[in-house]
Design a protein around this nucleic acid. Structure first.
Lengths: 164, 164
DNA sequence: AGTGAAACACTTGGTGG
DNA sequence: CCACCAAGTGTTTCACT
């Protein structure tokens, strides 16, 4: 199962202004009651409901998640790990990435252009945990040519609903 | 207003196994009905409800958001921009970061250890948009010493509820 | 802290414009 | 594609354990 290009690239269908408004509202509060949402975007509850459903079905809205404080889960530190794969092992890159992605420490995984093949955003209990992860999940693999670990002092997600 | 260390570091209070279960469920589905959640974690709806409220009040759960496909919002490409600040301008780093953070293109902002001061995860319509952002928001500032932009081919968020 | 029941609010499908 | 309406379902509070 490839994890690259898993989305059917559905940007062909442009969003209406109302859809944009719905998406923006749900990005800032995913639990906004449908009735309130409907009022804010100027729709009846049922019309709003079916639009939200359509947005989910179209894959515009992929899902809803709780935003959790890592520290509360016992992850006191976060790190970025840049990973370079051996040229010969590039063909197995996706599969290797998939084994990484399911690890509980991996908060995010980026596939990159440039000298590094991907970047891992890591949640860990402490610095030993980071080291263990890098040794166990990365350095021990034949495919990995190089890693570079940087500590994250602080991390913020977007505040503004993306209206470009 | 400082955006660094804004959280009161409330990891002193350890999570109970039930709380962990609640958090894990809500991370994989933020819109899980309270009744279903209660059943899954083995609590009555009312008890579950008050625990979720407590988790929010304690800051363990920061909020709920919709996970949206950037492409559907007209952002065809994503990029990482590494930013290095002039040593003399480091004192104003937080304030500068705050001006960045409120920009609609900024999906995430990391404060880093190492040679780069921070890292911006960018959403953009196209490569021109990336260039314009870097020129306008970064290179034009006196504080910025250096930037390095890398293209993101693909981006994945965690699949596994973090149970370390 | 957890339970159970009752009041309340919200969602969700059908019907018609 | 949208609004209105009517069940049906889920949430939320409170008194009690």
């Amino acid at each position: 199962m490839s994890i690259l290009r898993q989305r059917p690239a559905e940007e062909s269908t442009q969003l209406t202004p109302t859809d944009r408004a719905i998406v923006d509202e749900l990005r800032s509060d995913g639990r906004l009651p449908n009735a309130t949402l409907a009022e804010r975007v100027g729709l009846s509850p049922s019309a709003c409901h079916s639009r939200v459903r359509a947005l989910r079905d179209r894959g515009v809205i992929r899902g809803f998640t709780a935003d959790v404080d890592p520290a509360a889960l016992g992850c006191a530190i976060q790190a970025l790990v840049f990973v370079r794969i051996h040229p010969r092992a590039r063909s197995g890159l996706e599969q290797f990435a998939e084994t990484l992605r399911v690890r509980p420490e991996v908060a995010q995984l980026y596939f990159l252009g440039g000298s590094d093949d991907f970047l891992i955003h890591l949640w860990a209990r402490d610095s030993n945990h980071v080291r263990d992860f890098v040794l166990d999940a990365l350095s021990s693999s034949q495919a990995v040519a190089h890693t570079d670990t940087k500590l994250i002092f602080d991390h913020h997600r977007a505040v503004t609903p993306t209206a470009l």
